[in-house]
Amino acid sequence: MRYEELIKAYFDSFESERLPYIKCTKCGKVFYYPRTFCINCNSTDLQVKTSEGKGKIFTMTKFNNTIYGIVELKEGFRLYTNIIDENGKADIGVDVEVRFTVGNGGKKFPVFRVV
């Protein structure tokens, strides 16, 4: 799959409110950020999959009342994201789930909400 096709698949998934990730069919490595080769074995035999969108806060920081962090998803990959905390419960190890919000360019993108 070409890089442009991967990017399109990701943005199409976001618009459908689905969280994509990549799985290498050779070694089984999973990762979030679009690449045309496996970050573990360099294979180009990759599949775009859909995550359940549930995970835990791996690490986080608060800056100007906004929470940024790394979320580890049940499928085994991590991604850097904004974390929405409506109840003041955000902390490392707390459960989160994906939500989609519209950015300045009118496109949807994933954020995570504390559950």
Rank of each mutant, 00 (worst) to 15 (best):
I83T: 03
R99H: 10
P34C: 11
T36W: 06
V102K: 15
K49W: 04
N64Q: 13
K62C: 04
D85A: 07
P34F: 14
E97S: 14
T44L: 00
V98Q: 05
E52Y: 00
G76K: 00
T61G: 06
I57A: 03
C41H: 13
E86T: 11
G69M: 04
K74C: 01
T66P: 02
N42M: 14
E75Q: 11
N40I: 03
N82K: 15
G88N: 10
M60I: 02
F100Q: 07
N64A: 15
Q47K: 14
I67N: 09
T44V: 10
K89G: 03
D91K: 13
C38Q: 05
F37R: 13
F58H: 06
Y68A: 09
M60D: 01
T59S: 14
G69L: 08
L79E: 07
I70L: 02
I84V: 15
V102S: 11
T61S: 12
L46I: 09
E72T: 06
G53Y: 13
D85W: 08
E72F: 08
R35V: 01
C41M: 09
E75C: 11
G76D: 03
V102W: 07
L79K: 04
V98Y: 05
L46R: 01
T101K: 14
V71L: 03
I57D: 04
I39S: 09
C38S: 01
Y33C: 01
Y33E: 09
I70M: 07
I92L: 09
G93F: 00
T50W: 12
G88F: 10
E75M: 08
K74M: 00
G69S: 02
N64W: 08
K56C: 00
T36P: 10
D95R: 08
E52Q: 03
S43T: 04
F63V: 14
E72V: 03
N64L: 14
D85G: 09
A90G: 06
E72A: 06
I92H: 01
D45C: 05
T59G: 09
R35K: 09
D45I: 02
K62D: 07
L46W: 09
N87D: 11
V71A: 00
K62P: 01
E72S: 13
D95W: 05
G93V: 05
F37Q: 12
F63G: 07
E52S: 04
V96K: 01
V102R: 15
F100M: 11
